[in-house]
Amino acid sequence: MNEYILEIEGLHKKRNGFELKDVSLRIPYGFVMGMIGANGAGKTTIIKLILNLLRRDSGSIRLFGRDILENEVEIKERIGFVLDRPPYYDDISLRANARIVSMFYRKWNQHYFDQLLEEFDLSPRKKFGKLSQGQKMKFGLAVALSHDADLILMDEPTAGLDPVFRRELLERLGNLLLDDKKSVLFSTHITSDLEKIADYITFVHDGEVVFSATREEVGERWCVVKGGRELLTAETTALFRGHRMSQFGFEALCDDTQAVRSRFGDDVVIERASLEDIMFYLNKGVHHA
């Protein structure tokens, strides 16, 4: 068996003035990847391209070792997805919506689905259109989890969810991952709770992948440096991926902790960069460069 459940290479897509450039990432079987980036960075486009809801211009997307263009029906049966705009009918009940969706999946588990609805406190008789944003997300999640999918794709799954349900989502994903053949890809613009369970982080910025690495590698490489203003010269600025000046000193983002340590020694404070730090400074770097 191929080692990766999802392999994307050299993916390109031009769309309404937005361009996705040379996107590559891989998720091994049994792991979680968080795709992180600011609004408009291209996360949703990537997820739609994986599901072939958008046509790619070039590049390859392999799911379970095969190209989705050649095995679309078979591959999609093994994917559970939760999209930003859920593809369900507003005017009919949840039960009726589920009946329609279930026809597309051979492994549909009605019993498990009913159980999830109950646990998520959703009435099967309610019309989909009457649900709140968070409830729609829960319904989508229940569908995604009810057909024994091997890969779960989620676009901003925590949008509109309260912290209580976010924890519940974590628990569900944890259960899923007890099976070392199942993987998850979710996009988000940062929620620290989900960040913790991600094995891999892919950072998307302005249509490009800035990095795609294990959470540990990211933590070791990226740091925030803080020190006095006099240390920020043309030479040292070259080390940084973005910085912020204040009256009393500077703060800067760097992707080579060791280089900073050997250059500045004890003259500066070096902290692990949070994903939020990375997002902030990279965005800033672009706007002000």
Binding site: G30, F31, V32, L170, E171, G174, N175, L177, L178, D180, D193, K196, I197, A198, D199, Y200, T214, R215, E216
Partner: peptide
């Protein structure tokens, strides 16, 4: 490893490490 990752709600790779 996977059981512990689930219980602690942390990533599998962290636990494995």
């Amino acid at each position: 490893i996977r059981g512990l990752a689930r219980e602690l709600q942390i990533s599998v790779i962290t636990t494995k490490r």
